[in-house]
Design a protein around this nucleic acid. Structure first.
Lengths: 246, 246
DNA sequence: ATCTTGCTTTTTGCATTCAAACTGTTAGGT
DNA sequence: ACCTAACAGTTTGAATGCAAAAAGCAAGAT
């Protein structure tokens, strides 16, 4: 075990009661592999031989295989009978399917959030928003993207609906694999920021219907961005195993 | 593409090319167990000892455990570390969370379906609808419920969005576990039928916005039905292992 | 030269085995 | 008598082993 515990301070709630808790090998593998797929370390279409992953993680095939099955059920892997697993390909059609769904999920979240959001949550979102705006001003795309993601998650959290959050996370992970932001045009970026202004405004006003509407439009535009990204050639389906150069 | 529209198989595509194909033990178990949970054969809260299931299905623990992990990731089972699996409990709060999500998913499906539904699909839905109405007239609740479910699935299919369908199926399974229909009042039932009339009407008119609206309301009312069902005592959380008598 | 065909190697699917954690019971101490 | 603590039995977590399927390769036929 060369692996020290990596703190993920901004993701999971750190309960002070049970710091000793060790996740099962199986769960750890699911998390690790999911990240690897979402972050693009494993490219779409890549075969995932069990043996090599076992060696890489220093575990036996049993927990690894359990993890593969779970990730397949999430749609991140494809299981070919007797031929192992492969990272699920993401076609343009797949993405165009996902965005409307994402749109309604976020719209619902916005509606619920407006009804429930606390002043504190709102303040946090506002702070992140303006920091994000700053990143936009500076042209710092990765940082912008990170905060963007975070804001959407906070809205989701403010909605206080675990079922919804679960679906959102799953879909969000699958969409993020596309990495379309890499070649987002200046115009699109500016538009997205404007929409985020409107989002913050509607949320501040607790205007659920309006926020839902804005979020749906926001997602539709995101979908457009992806479509444009596809035209440039780069996108969800790299032809061969290109190194992850972002 | 992959979409065989005239296959009348309601679940799996029966390809005539490979009748020999055997699903993996693992997949078979996932299906089987999922049904057992959704149909209530395994009651919420029930422990699921590996050994007994292995004997019941005549398989070893390895594929069974893989299936358990998948079902846990779907939210049908809870995995207690070192203490095995239990059928996930379904609290009233859980259900109240699920219905709004179900509502938006169905609403989106309705919207998409209006834009894409073929005459043939519409005809099939219409036929099922009026047969369902007949079951209502005769007071045949189980048959009514089956067709009801079927109609919603056909609308979903007409939407032609695999991602959406996937989420819908998962959530539908989890909601169905509640078996709230068992004690639906006459008034609620009649109301549901009326709403279905409106659904058919809007779909026939290809009025997406209206259909979405109706479906959302339909689901809100379903949620109310559940709430009432809870007041009568029966509901999602049977105190002990009551036989599944519906 | 290319395609077929049989064999060898590798990988997967599942069963079995081993170790650690939990459950329930009983013996001992206060 | 009650509470604590140790022990046996069971169940889970993970590793290993074994058979079947696929992938790679080479030799022969057309």
């Amino acid at each position: 075990m060369t692996e020290g515990t990596q703190m993920r301070s901004n993701e999971t709630e750190v309960a002070r009661g049970e710091p000793i808790a060790r996740a099962s090998l199986h769960d750890e593998l699911v998390e690790r592999l999911r990240d690897m797929i979402v972050e693009g370390e494993l490219a779409p279409g890549d075969r995932v031989p069990e043996r090599s992953l076992c060696e890489r993680f220093g575990v036996s095939r049993t927990p690894l295989r359990e993890a593969l099955k779970v990730l397949a059920s999430e749609g991140l892997l494809e299981l070919l009978p007797n031929r192992g697993a492969a990272v699920a390909r993401l076609t343009g059609d797949d993405l165009e399917e996902m965005f409307p769904v994402m749109g309604t999920l976020e719209a619902l979240a916005g509606e619920l959030a407006c009804a429930q959001v606390t002043e504190e949550q709102l303040a946090e979102i506002r702070a992140l928003h303006y920091q994000m705006v700053l990143h936009h001003t500076r042209g710092e795309l990765p940082q912008y993207f990170r905060l963007n993601q975070r804001i959407h998650e906070l809205i989701m959290q403010a909605a206080g609906n675990a079922t919804l959050t679960r679906m959102y996370r799953s879909l969000s992970g699958r969409i993020r694999r596309a990495r379309y932001v890499a070649n987002m045009s200046k115009a699109r970026w500016a538009q997205a920021v404007e929409e985020h202004e409107a989002i913050l405004e509607a949320l501040s006003a607790r205007d659920g219907a309006r926020l839902a509407d804005i979020l749906k439009r926001h997602l539709r535009n995101k979908c457009e961005t992806v479509r444009e990204s596809f035209l440039t050639g780069d996108g969800a389906e790299p032809a061969a195993d290109t190194e992850r150069s972002a």
